[in-house]
């Protein structure tokens, strides 16, 4: 059993859990994820490690309620226990002094960018962060981002905070202006695809973090397979970080819909049980 030591709500559908998991906290590296299994009947849900503290023995995950599994997670309070957390999983992000790095986080994707940003800054990179949200009320962790960014930009779709527009605009501006050594973009698939398209003509290495549907997370089922150039890779053991210029996003977007029919059924059942 794993204890949830803190819960924080960012918006009506996004929230944070801090979990007591000393072994995972010690082993975790930026870019890795865990699989959370709340109880015997629930799905195994992959979630990126958004922060980890080896001294305190905790890991932090930031969750967007997307369907039944994550909605159910919203009901847990600090002090509650869940049945299993497996991890860390996946290959850690490459952390080196690359020179100037742009880190782009879209919506909840800002959370998994954070530990990578911190590690790159501590390695000596010049860090530029661009985080984007739909609207002001969804903005979170601004202070954390500023602390580890040499330059930081916030955008909102509706202009209610920071610059108005999408993350791709400042990314394009920066890349046209100066020499960028690497871009890391995490967020919804369409956002990552757009970022990769922005950087492609400039040949700037662009890393995205893919999130295909997973089951075991150990390389045993192939549910998470992703076409990367001519190859087939398993996101849970070869990723989740992948070369954004090689990922077949169109295929990935279609594969995300594999279980839509069942997800709707689950959600309807959940809403009947727990009316809003």
């Amino acid at each position: 059993m794993f204890e949830i030591t803190a819960v924080e709500s960012f918006s009506p559908s996004t929230f944070l859990w801090e979990i007591n998991a000393p072994e995972i906290a010690r082993a975790a590296r930026p870019g890795q994820f865990v699989i959370v299994h709340c109880d015997e009947t629930s799905e195994r849900i992959p979630l990126t490690i958004a922060d980890f503290d080896a001294v305190k023995g905790t890991i932090t995950i930031v969750i967007q309620a997307a369907g039944k599994g994550t909605l159910e997670m919203m009901a847990y309070k600090a002090g509650d226990r869940i049945s299993a957390v497996a991890g860390p999983l996946g290959e850690p992000s490459e952390i080196e002094n690359f020179g100037t790095v742009v880190l782009v986080g879209g919506g909840l994707g800002a959370a998994p960018v954070y530990p990578i940003l911190r590690a790159l800054k501590l390695k000596g990179c010049h860090t530029i962060s661009i985080i984007g949200f739909r609207t002001k009320s969804l903005v979170f962790w601004e202070g954390r981002f500023r602390r580890y960014s040499d330059e930081s930009i916030i955008v909102t779709d509706d202009g209610s905070y920071g610059e108005k527009g999408l993350v791709t605009q400042p990314l394009k501006d920066i890349i046209m202006e100066r020499q960028i050594n690497r871009v890391i973009a995490i967020g919804p698939l369409v956002m990552m695809r757009s970022c990769a398209e922005v950087t492609r003509p400039f040949g700037v290495r662009t890393i995205v973090s893919v999130n295909p549907i997973m089951v075991d997370g150990t390389g045993m089922c192939g549910s998470c397979r992703v076409s990367l150039g001519d190859e087939v890779k398993f996101a849970c053991i070869d990723g989740p970080d992948m070369d954004g210029h090689l990922v077949n996003f169109d295929e990935l977007i279609i594969r995300q819909k594999r279980f839509v029919k069942y997800e709707k059924q689950s959600l309807a059942l959940y809403e009947k049980k727990c009316p809003k």
Binding site: V215, M220, G222, S223, N248, R258
Partner: peptide, 15 residues
């Protein structure tokens, strides 16, 4: 082979 509805036996049996 990447179409929806195509899966490995391991995925199917594990599910």
């Amino acid at each position: 082979d990447a179409l929806n509805g195509v899966m490995s036996a391991n995925e199917f049996l594990t599910r």
